[in-house]
């Protein structure tokens, strides 16, 4: 399997944690994985993104026009990272999963049209609302992961996601994290 993914968000949203879950899933399947991320400014309100390359690759960064999957924890950051997605390749178009109220991911019709012509499938999920309902806005990243895992082209199974998340979570947060995944999947 080869998969290139981008996780985009804002400092504090848990981009790095989401990336950690991915690397754990890959590790458990004994797949080589590269995870390269924006440091530092993550905690200070800036844009944060992680490049994930799972499978046999020789270089760590995803090239523009090569990503199979974009997880946007913030819809403006999703806009910013759209150029990484690839165009339709035979049967396969890229997948874009965005944290936004329904239909609000790409409100500009020109952007939506472009994505359509590129064969990108867009799924929106109001992860923020779900996390807020759980009284913890920090869980939006896991809600979005749970939601994304339901997609057929998500590189791992939902069970793998749960196992990996449980493995990298602290004991105090583990149950809440798994709950967030479940609520995301149910959307």
């Amino acid at each position: 399997m080869k998969c290139q993914a981008i996780i985009a968000g804002v400092g504090g949203q848990g981009v790095l944690f989401a990336a950690k879950v991915f690397t754990e899933m890959a590790r458990r399947r004994q797949l080589p994985v590269f995870g390269s991320q924006t440091f530092g400014m993550a905690q200070r309100g800036g844009s944060v993104m992680t490049h994930l390359k799972i499978g046999e690759f020789n270089s760590p960064l995803v090239c523009e026009g090569d990503a199979d999957l974009l997880l946007g924890l913030d819809f403006t950051e999703a806009h910013r990272t759209l150029p990484y997605l690839h165009e339709q390749r035979g049967e396969r178009g890229a997948v874009c999963v965005v944290n936004a109220p329904a239909g609000q991911a790409f409100p500009d019709s020109r952007v939506a049209a472009l994505l359509g012509s590129m064969g990108v499938t867009v799924h929106t999920c109001d992860a923020d609302a779900v996390a807020l309902a759980m009284n913890n806005p920090l869980l939006a990243n896991l809600v979005l992961l749970g939601f994304g895992a339901a997609h057929e082209r998500f590189p791992f199974t939902y069970d793998e996601l749960c196992t990996a998340t449980a493995a990298v979570s602290g004991a105090l947060r583990r149950d809440a994290n798994l709950d967030a995944l479940e609520r995301g999947r149910a959307l």
């Binding site: 804002v10 400014m41 200070r44 309100g45 800036g46 844009s47 403006t76 910013r80 020109r110």
Partner: peptide, 8 residues
Amino acid sequence: MALPTRRP
């Protein structure tokens, strides 16, 4: 379309 600058 203008994206907001996220100044850290």
